[in-house]
Amino acid sequence: MPERTTVVASRSGLHARPAAIFADAAARLDVDVTIALAGTPEEEALDASSILSLMTLGAGNGDSVVLRAEGPGAGAALEELAALLETDLDAQ
């Protein structure tokens, strides 16, 4: 399963508005995507398209997260989502 490690750039981390934007983007993809804090076992990763899961994750500004995707186009999906996390979504 392809994976991509990236850093959360939003000032408030993955809370409220940034989590909603990210969950919406993940839900529109034709692949299943999970997210976890770096160092978390793969089996404990959460559904990246769930706003509740993203807020439960507790990822703050500057935290490293691991995205994993499964399905055709997984690599491109990971790049798209990583770019979103590397943007300050609070500023939009």
Rank of each mutant, 00 (worst) to 15 (best):
R4L: 12
A9C: 10
A9S: 10
S10P: 13
R11V: 06
R11L: 04
H15L: 14
A16F: 13
A16M: 10
R17L: 15
A19N: 04
I21A: 09
A23K: 03
A23Y: 00
D24C: 01
A25M: 09
A25P: 10
A26D: 00
L29W: 05
V33I: 14
T34D: 03
T34M: 07
T34N: 01
I35H: 05
I35Q: 03
I35R: 02
L37E: 06
P41K: 12
E43R: 14
E44L: 14
A45N: 04
A45Q: 03
L46C: 07
D47C: 01
D47Y: 02
D47V: 01
A48K: 03
S50R: 11
I51W: 05
I51E: 00
S53E: 04
M55W: 04
T56Y: 01
L57G: 02
L57R: 01
L57C: 00
G58N: 00
G60Y: 11
G62Q: 15
V66K: 11
V66R: 09
R68I: 14
A69H: 03
E70G: 15
E70K: 14
G71Q: 13
G71M: 11
A76P: 02
A77L: 10
A77M: 12
L78S: 06
L78P: 06
E79S: 14
E79Y: 09
E79F: 04
E80F: 10
L84G: 03
L84C: 09
T87F: 06
D88M: 07
A91F: 05
